[in-house]
């Protein structure tokens, strides 16, 4: 049934299988989602939901997306014109920004006005990358993507850069790493997490299950 298709975009970034397997597990509780890892823009255009995982450097990942003819157009059509639910994970969220400043300045998708900059924790003892489990605080606790989660729940982060949106109102959750760091965002049908829900055990699987049911 094409209506329940969830496209996980394969653009050469590592660890797609983890996202796929976690979505499969999250779908077990009553979702009819069909999870498909794909590099084919046609599947993305047809998908009911779209997930953009991401591991690696901003510019490399952006180049990976641009390297698939028609992929960004298909994402634009499905997400921005048709309003289908979208979830970017880690660098997949960062790519939404206007600009990334990892190893130079690089244009992102520009769906969220903002920039991706290096973590500069206020406390000099904090290491970069931030690696490990950190607590979430909720900017919009009633958002359906956070259903069943509690402030103070932990999620797994591993990143050296973070997205600073111009409009702070898009924030869904934050974490503290020597200062506030955007942990999740939602703007209309477009969502993203800086942490890895596919690696965040119960908390992450719940967020993915919420995404599969989300009707923005």
């Amino acid at each position: 049934m094409p209506g329940s298709l969830v496209a996980v975009i394969d653009y050469g970034s590592g660890n797609l299988r983890s996202a796929e397997r976690a979505l499969l597990r999250a779908a077990e509780g009553g979702s009819d989602a069909e999870i498909r890892v794909t590099a084919d823009p046609e599947w993305v255009r047809r998908a009911e939901r779209i997930v953009l995982p991401g591991v690696g450097a901003f510019a490399d990942c952006m180049a990976g997306l641009l390297g698939i003819p028609g992929m960004i157009d298909a994402m634009d059509e499905a997400v921005r014109r048709q309003g289908r639910p979208f979830l970017g994970i880690c660098v997949g969220m960062q790519l939404l920004a206007t600009e990334g400043r990892e190893h130079g300045r690089h244009a992102g998708l520009g769906w969220i006005v903002g920039e991706v900059v290096r973590l500069q924790p206020g406390d000099a003892a904090l290491k970069v990358p931030q690696t490990g489990w950190n607590e979430l605080s909720f900017s919009r606790p009633d958002h359906p993507l956070l259903a069943g989660l509690e402030p103070g729940d932990h999620a797994y982060f591993v990143h050296s850069y973070h997205l600073r949106p111009r409009d702070g109102g898009v924030a869904l959750a934050e974490t503290d790493y020597g200062g506030p760091v955007l942990a999740a965002l939602a703007a209309g049908n477009i969502a993203g997490t800086q942490f890895h829900p596919e690696k965040s055990q119960r908390t992450g699987l719940r967020l993915l299950a919420n995404f599969l049911k989300w009707r923005p």
Binding site: G14, N15, R17, S18, R21, V55, H196, K199
Partner: peptide
């Protein structure tokens, strides 16, 4: 392991090329 455990996984031992790294990441290592 990655199919069942939704947590970070580090794998080492005999990693000697970029291709070895890629294979591990594709298999589900983080």
């Amino acid at each position: 392991t990655a199919a069942e455990c939704f947590m970070p996984l580090m794998v080492g031992g005999g990693v000697s090329t970029v291709e070895d790294v890629r294979q591990l990441l594709l298999a589900g290592a983080d």
